[in-house]
Amino acid sequence: MAQLFSARADLFLRLGLLALVVLPLTMAVSGFAYYRSSYYTGVGAYVQQPVPFSHRHHAGELGIDCRYCHTQVEKAAFAGLPPTETCMTCHSQIWTNAEMLAPIRASLATNTPIRWNRVHDLADYVYFDHSVHVTNGVGCSSCHGDVADMPLMAKAEPLTMGWCLDCHRDPAKNLRPESEIYNTAWEKPADQRRKGRALLAHYGIRKDHLTDCSVCHR
């Protein structure tokens, strides 16, 4: 009886089997790498805004406190984005003709809020609260990076579950005193371990429940 398969077909069969093993593997690895990459998490990507608002200019060079604009950050879950009126407390008198600020003036004249494009946006099934962090020794820059040096806002951290948990498992390594919460250039002192433990007690943080699923998925 003549051979059913040619030698070539045999080669294809082997290659096919090999591909069956290798392809899913590469897909899994590259998929994982993709979910970890900044393409997916958006770290470092600038977001275009209706007005090119510069934190470097306002929070950095002018030294305006974060709370001047993000009023709710100590009191509520949501940090709050400034309404047009907040910009106008200064821009009613300075840079009143600047082309860049035309949308702000139009917004005030027509009473239409400016729609800032979101830079950080957690999945809707995650519960997050600013006040609990900011009043318990976690500073803005631990999660948002050196905002006072950003010409346009970009995400500095991936905001994945692993990233949240990394701190929740051991918050002491990131805690700082009350006076440094809004200092976005804060750096950990050499003896952060020791200081962190003291701060953990100072703020009365009970870390045993912080990794419970129900803390963030309610």
Binding site: F78, G80, L81, R115, W116, R118, A123, D124, Y125
Partner: peptide, 13 residues
């Protein structure tokens, strides 16, 4: 669906 739920969060449209 759970990432974009039909609920209103601050600043959603």
């Amino acid at each position: 669906d759970m990432v974009e739920q039909p609920k209103l969060k601050p600043y959603s449209s």
